[in-house]
Design a protein around this nucleic acid. Structure first.
Lengths: 117, 117
DNA sequence: TGCACATATGAGCATTTATTCACATGAAAA
DNA sequence: TTTTCATGTGAATAAATGCTCATATGTGCA
């Protein structure tokens, strides 16, 4: 277990570092946070989420819109489900997906604003 | 080049799919978007960005706060720089980093809200 | 100049991840 | 029941990614 304490005793701004350390959140929070953003950090998934922000869609619809295999879409939908970003309802053979809340929409909106600068 | 057109002519909801296809953004926008979110989708980087949202910090400070090597931090800072998420100023031997705009802060804030549900 | 030190970077390695293929599941229709 | 079809999933593979180690860069100071 390395400590990287070379700098820790010389160059750092002790005050500032201590202050920021105090303000840091718990590891689980950061972990949760980065995992959520990771869901948005993929071209396929971000397109899927954007599409779902417009309409409820089945696997087949998404596959058609993104021009990807249904298997690929299904795999990604499972990830999104596990991260509580989408919900779904079954109707016969079909499964209809939609966003599980409005947070994703807001994040997407903010992201687009930033991207368009 | 597969077309996955099996479904395209049978099970899809043509109306809905066409509507959503019309509303989809350009590929460059989605690409930009997912790349930005990807920067937030890593435990180390999200911690770095959070820390930088509190104080301007040097490489050494960040390494100390995250308990990681300065090399690792430097590599990640380069990524963040390339994505215009952090800016830096040199002062002698030191390099001081800070967030390049408030968008990241807002995204982090929204992410935390969502994570805490 | 020459040394010390903070930061930057290239190569290598181990891990993660996105897609495909093949097959399983489950519901509707024949 | 048997068939069909939309969806779900495990295994495999190729690509991307994060860290480490070694080394380079560049600044301040003796």
């Amino acid at each position: 277990m390395k400590r990287y304490d070379v700098c820790e005793e010389r160059c750092i701004h002790e005050e500032t570092v201590r202050k920021v350390e105090d303000e840091m959140l718990g590891d689980e929070v950061f972990s949760h946070l980065s995992n959520d953003f990771k869901m948005l950090g993929d071209l396929t998934r971000v397109k899927m989420l954007f599409a779902l922000s417009r309409e409820e869609l089945c696997v087949c619809d998404l596959a058609s819109i993104l021009n990807l295999s249904e298997s690929a879409i299904s795999h990604q939908l499972r990830l999104l489900r596990n991260h509580n970003m989408v919900k779904f309802r079954r109707d016969g053979k079909m499964a209809y997906y939609s966003l599980s809340d409005q947070h994703v929409v807001q994040l997407l909106k903010m992201g687009v604003e930033h991207a368009q600068e």
